[in-house]
């Protein structure tokens, strides 16, 4: 098993290298001169030349890439063009809200979606199943910002239960924190709930057709025990896989949700950076998000070998 874990972990390296290369090329192969942007409105041509030199933009690409990669490995993501602050510091400042929102969304979605999927599978073909599936397709079909605005309108403005915008750090008290991320979590969670519910239902249905379930039922085991102990446990792998893959979806949603609810997280940082062409920030944020995605999926892969002893590579 350890050999498998080691092998899986090593496989991350080429993936991250490709990510780094893509992120690097993104900025260097697209039109537009970063030096001119950094120099700003009043730049004189000699300023631009100086900045190009300073940033090493006059060197061949492969040298630029290796210098850049080396500094990234040491944790240096460069300096923001506009605020002149280190990108790693800017990212650090905004990590908490994004992390909190992502974790709460995953928890919320799993807690809602897995029971939904199980229920739908168990009552397969009934109106319960149908309505859960209709919800699941609907959840995929409405953009997250529309859901966000509807939630704000109903729960913040009409009922006044939740704040309209902003984020309260956990350090400022747990209840204000929960209140501030409740609506964003729900808005962001809808797609995720839909996704996980579909997969849970599908994999449960498949497991329920297996012989050992029939055997268990024939032996007269309690239905609850059959569902929980046999079926759900065996359906867990695809469900966990989809949670991992769905992180990519989640990150896209975080960016939107943070702008709807004005949460000062990494998503807002990304959008601001994109609107201002603050290249070092764009690079840094994409790298961080991708690394998070890769690591979460690595952990998930590793967790299989604990969940399902049959999986050995």
């Amino acid at each position: 098993m350890y050999a498998y874990i080691a092998k899986r972990t090593l496989a991350v390296i080429p993936v991250m290298l490709v990510v780094a290369l893509v992120v690097f090329l993104l900025l260097h192969l697209t039109p537009g001169d970063p030096a001119a942007v950094i120099a700003g409105d009043y730049a004189r041509p000699e300023d631009i030349v100086r900045i190009r030199k300073q940033l090493g933009l006059d060197e061949p690409l492969y040298i630029q890439f290796s210098t850049w990669l080396w500094s990234v490995l040491r944790g240096d993501l460069g300096v923001s063009i506009f605020s002149n602050m280190p990108v790693s510091k800017l990212i650090g400042q905004r990590l908490e809200p994004t992390l909190a929102l992502s974790v709460s969304t995953i928890l919320f979605s799993v807690l809602i979606a897995v029971p939904m999927g199980v229920w739908a599978a168990w009552r397969s073909g009934t109106w319960v199943d149908r309505s859960i599936m209709v919800f699941a397709v609907l959840g995929f079909s409405v953009p997250v910002f529309v859901i966000g605005y509807v939630l704000i309108y109903v729960f913040s403005l009409k009922f006044g239960w939740f704040p309209v915008q902003g984020y309260k750090a956990i350090g400022d008290g747990f209840l204000p924190f929960l209140r501030s991320i409740a609506l964003p979590t729900i808005a962001l969670g809808v797609v995720y709930v839909a996704l996980i519910a579909r997969i849970s239902r599908a994999s449960m249905l498949e497991v329920l057709n297996e012989d050992y379930i029939r055997t268990a039922r024939a032996k007269g085991q309690v239905e609850r025990k059959v569902m929980m102990r046999h079926a759900l446990k065996n359906a867990a792998v695809p469900i966990i896989t989809i949670i991992g893959i769905g992180i990519a979806l989640l990150i896209g949603g975080v960016v939107v949700t943070e702008s709807v609810f004005n949460i000062p997280g990494l998503g807002r940082l990304t959008i601001d950076a994109v609107l201002r062409r603050d290249y070092p920030i764009i690079q840094g944020v994409i790298l961080v998000f991708s690394a998070a995605y890769v690591i979460v999926n690595l952990l998930i892969d590793i967790s299989y070998s604990f969940l399902d002893p049959r999986i050995r590579y």
């Binding site: 991250m16 990510v19 893509v22 992120v23 697209t30 979806l249 896209g252 994409i286 991708s290």
Partner: peptide
């Protein structure tokens, strides 16, 4: 694998 590791919406925004 590398491309898949970059969240799609982010990659699109950046592009």
């Amino acid at each position: 694998d590398g491309l898949m590791a970059i969240p799609g919406v982010l990659l699109a925004i950046a592009l």
